[in-house]
């Protein structure tokens, strides 16, 4: 099972490398959304500092939600999902590998440029580790939600928008605890409770997402 997970992961990784511009445009999209805030709110550094962490989270959410729709749709159209149903392995294994790879190629670049983002909106750079940790946890949960939504909307009209409509209400807890951990930082409080909450939400989502994605993919195959 772990071996098969690794094979799927490797395939996914090879595909993502062959489409490296997608990763970059995803990143640029994130930075652009972030740039909208100073322009809309005004350049006042105090203001930006106050909303800084919220801005990062919103930019991450908004830039990612439309991307999730592509998680399974390519493989669905090319007929890969149904073929992998014959590999004598549960589809959940495929879905998990896919989500994990997607998580890495979206979260890692974001965490790499995060220090620069922090500098740009005046967040104290010494908080980088804490912010990165909460963001990494939050994006993990988001990816699982995205995976669920993506498997459910396979074959639907206007799947990208629909996926976002499904994800965003479900993702509120992640946003709340993510931003509150930032708030705790700026008030010199411990952010551990929020980090643990994020972790708990992630674990809940892992338990929920695997069977849900499996059921969603199976249903999509049956109606191909």
């Amino acid at each position: 099972m772990i071996l098969i997970f690794w094979y799927y992961f490797k395939r996914e990784f090879e595909i993502s490398i062959s489409q490296i511009t997608d990763i970059l445009s995803q990143l640029v999209f994130f930075i652009l959304i972030m740039m909208l805030f100073p322009i809309a709110l005004g350049p006042d550094p105090e203001n930006l500092k106050e909303f800084g962490i919220a801005i990062i989270w919103i930019a991450a959410f908004v830039s990612l939600t439309p991307a999730y729709d592509r998680l399974f749709s390519d493989d669905y159209i090319h007929g890969f999902i149904e073929k992998s149903a014959h590999n004598a392995q549960p589809l959940g294994c495929y879905a998990a590998a896919k989500c994990f790879c997607f998580y890495l190629i979206t979260a890692l670049p974001l965490l790499i440029i995060l220090p620069f983002i922090c500098l740009m909106i005046g967040i104290n750079i010494s908080f980088y580790g804490e912010i990165a940790l909460s963001l990494a946890l939050g994006m993990f949960g988001m990816t699982l939600l995205g995976g669920i939504a993506s498997s459910l909307v396979l074959g639907a009209r206007r799947a990208a928008i629909l996926g976002a409509v499904l994800i965003l209400p479900l993702s509120l807890p992640i946003l709340i605890f993510g931003c509150m951990s930032g708030l705790a930082l700026s008030e010199d409080l411990s952010m551990r409770p929020h980090i643990f909450m994020l972790l708990a939400i992630d674990l809940c989502l892992v338990v929920m997402a695997l069977p849900a994605m499996q059921a969603g993919l199976k249903n999509a195959i049956e109606n191909a």
Binding site: I148, L152, V153, G155, A156, R157, R158, A159, L162, V165, L166, A212, A215, G216, N219, N223
Partner: peptide
Amino acid sequence: ALSNAFDQSERGARPAAIL
């Protein structure tokens, strides 16, 4: 939205139920 997003009307029932 999900249950009505498919061209075949009964196709949306299962995804919507999972949701």
